[in-house]
Amino acid sequence: MKVTKIRNVEFKSPAFLAPMAGVSDRAYRELCRQFGAGYCVSEMVSSKALSFNNKKSEELMEISESERPCGIQIFGGEPECMALAAKSAMKQNPDIIDINMGCPAPKISSAGSGAALMRNPQLCGEIVNAVVKVSNVPVTVKIRKGWDDDSVNSVEVAKICEQAGAAAITVHGRTRMQYYKPSVDYDIIKNVHDSVKIPVIANGDIDSAQKAKEIMDYTGCELVMVGRATLGNPWIFSQINSFLENPEKPLVFPTLEEKLDVMVQHISKMVEYKGEHMALLQARKLVVGYFKGVRGAAALRNEAGKISTLEDLYVLRERALQCSEAY
Results as ranks from 00 to 15, higher is better:
V3L: 07
V3A: 02
N8T: 03
N8Q: 12
V9K: 13
A18D: 07
P19V: 02
A21Q: 05
A21D: 08
S24T: 15
S24H: 00
R29Y: 00
C32M: 11
R33K: 15
Q34W: 06
A37R: 11
Y39F: 15
Y39S: 01
C40D: 01
S42D: 12
E43P: 15
M44W: 07
M44I: 03
E58C: 07
L60G: 00
E62H: 14
I63L: 15
S66V: 11
Q73D: 07
G77Y: 11
M82N: 11
L84Y: 14
A89S: 14
M90V: 05
Q92N: 15
Q92V: 00
Q92W: 14
P94C: 03
D95S: 10
I96P: 07
I96Y: 09
G102K: 04
A105W: 05
A105I: 12
P106Y: 02
S109V: 15
S109A: 14
L117H: 07
E126Y: 05
I127Q: 13
V128P: 14
A130S: 14
K133C: 04
S135N: 08
K142H: 11
G146C: 09
D149S: 13
V152N: 11
E156L: 11
E162W: 08
E162Q: 15
Q163R: 09
A167S: 14
A168H: 12
T170M: 11
S195E: 11
K197R: 15
P199Q: 12
N203I: 08
G204M: 09
G204I: 02
D205T: 06
S208T: 06
A212Y: 13
T219K: 03
E222M: 14
L223D: 09
V224Y: 10
M225P: 11
G232I: 03
W235N: 08
F237N: 10
S238R: 13
I240T: 04
P250M: 09
P254M: 08
K259N: 05
D261N: 14
M263H: 00
M263D: 06
S268E: 11
V271N: 07
E272V: 03
G275R: 02
H277R: 06
A279L: 02
L280C: 04
L280G: 00
L280M: 15
Q282K: 11
Q282P: 02
G289H: 10
K292M: 01
K292Y: 01
G293E: 04
V294T: 10
R295F: 01
A298K: 15
A298H: 12
L300G: 05
N302A: 13
E303A: 14
K306Q: 08
S308H: 03
E311H: 12
D312Q: 07
D312L: 03
Y314D: 13
V315Y: 08
E325L: 10
A326G: 10
